[in-house]
Amino acid sequence: MVVEDDADVVRLLQFRLEKEGFEVTTHGDGAAALKVAEVECPDLILMDIMMPLMDGIETLRQIKSRRATAKIPVIMLTARADRIAVEETREMGAVEYIVKPFDPEKLVQRVRKALKMPSEG
């Protein structure tokens, strides 16, 4: 699941990840993502921090506090690179923190790592 409000970045991620063989669902805001995550239980969530209404940190907190979704690994993918955000999200249970702009190849590797899959190449 990709939670990101910038459509271009969404398309970029979706393209690359689907190329890699992943099934990708996308949501533009935290609230919608939360509802769907509870039902669909994705294997991994890639989430931006800076989103309107409920931001990524709050959404993360919600995900981690609900039994249905608590175990889903979450990777933060965001332009916010300050230490506070990094630590807060780590404390809340995010497994990775990737700063934009990112190299899509490197991102794929880290996704595979988070899903505990062997990396290719």
């Binding site: 910038d6 271009d8 970045v9 970029l12 991620l13 393209f15 690359r16 800076m50 332009a79 916010r80 700063v99 934009k100 702009p101 990112f102 190299d103 899509p104 190849e105």
Partner: peptide, 16 residues
Amino acid sequence: HELRTPLTSIQGYVQL
């Protein structure tokens, strides 16, 4: 945020 987000798209698509 505002500068990095478009950079993400530019860089990302080019890298792809």
